[in-house]
Structure formats: structure tokens, C-alpha cells
């Protein structure tokens, strides 16, 4: 395999030396372009963990840096099931900076922060999971309750 570009080495170093609070990203030993990621659900959101068991609120994701990164965006996907209007059942994420609004000056850490922010601000007007988005618009309280339930059930540390 081709040598790892300096940019990826630098990003990886900084991620481990100065981790973003509430976010971790660790590369696989055998493929340094593949990262295991966890993101803590933001406080005061339905994805927040509880102080007492079952705690929860920790979401697992996978992140892959394609060959032409950073000219093309990283590929990111939720592995933990999540009830969110912009994330579908396969874990795919609808977020502009991961697609049309990607810029080569963005980084792994900035993208993960954007995803964490998306958990804090669901946007049912630009849905990926149509059923969830509809529920969100029709009965927001019920949707938030379901999101909390799923968080407790699936997003365990």
C-alpha cells in the first residue's frame, strides 16, 4: 500500500494527543485509514447518557479516509442504531459537509464535531429517514421520547 500522507499522520497524532472532549477516533493497526469512532450524545439532547445505569449515550461510528482524501470527504457511518431524522437505518448520515459542502481544509475532528452537533440539532426538514422525520414533525415529544428510549437501549458504552 502507498505510504500514508503526512496529513493523515498529523491528524491521527493530534487526535490522540489532544482529543476532542466527548469524541474519540482510533485508527486500526492494519489499516491506518480506517478509524473506530465514538461520539457522546450532546448534553440536553435525547442522545445524552444517563448519570445512573444504564448510562448509555455513547455512539459507535466507523470512518474511512479514501485514497484521494482530503480532496474527497471521509466516509462516515453510524454503527449504533439511532433514532434521528437525518440518520437512516443503515447508519448513513445526511450532512452537507460530508457531501456537497466538503472542503479539503476540513478535518476528521471538525467533521466529527459537526456530527455531534447534528445530534444536538436534528433537522426534520432535510430528512434521510423519512418515517422518523415525519414522526418528528407530527409529534415531536413522542419522537424525542423514542430517541431517548433507543439511546438507552442501544447506545451503551
Amino acid at each position: 500500500m502507498a505510504a500514508l500522507p503526512k496529513r493523515i499522520i498529523k491528524e491521527t497524532e493530534r487526535l490522540s494527543k489532544e482529543p476532542v472532549p466527548g469524541i474519540s477516533a482510533v485508527p486500526h493497526d492494519d489499516n491506518l485509514r480506517y478509524f473506530d469512532v465514538t461520539i457522546d450524545g450532546p448534553a440536553q439532547s435525547p442522545y445524552e447518557g444517563t448519570l445512573l445505569p444504564p448510562f448509555g449515550g455513547v455512539f459507535k461510528l466507523e470512518l474511512f479516509l479514501p485514497d484521494d482524501y482530503p480532496m474527497t470527504p471521509p466516509k462516515v457511518r453510524f454503527l449504533t442504531k439511532i433514532y434521528h431524522p437525518n440518520i437512516d437505518r443503515l447508519g448513513r448520515i445526511c450532512l452537507d459537509v460530508l457531501k456537497s459542502n466538503w472542503s479539503p481544509a476540513l478535518q476528521i475532528r471538525t467533521i466529527l464535531l459537526s456530527i455531534q452537533a447534528l445530534l444536538g440539532a436534528p433537522n426534520p426538514d432535510d430528512p434521510l429517514a423519512n418515517d422518523v422525520a415525519q414522526q418528528w414533525k407530527e409529534d415531536q415529544n413522542q419522537a424525542i421520547a423514542t430517541a431517548k428510549e433507543w439511546t438507552e437501549k442501544f447506545a451503551k458504552a
Binding site: P5, K6, R7, K10, E11, P70, P104, A105
Partner: peptide
């Protein structure tokens, strides 16, 4: 320092 003169894309 080199950090201050690194390209934001390749970081070199």
C-alpha cells in the same frame, strides 16, 4: 515555526 507555514490541505 513550520506549523505556521503549513498548507491547510497537505499540512506540509
Amino acid at each position: 515555526q513550520i506549523e505556521d507555514y503549513a498548507c491547510p490541505m497537505c499540512m506540509e
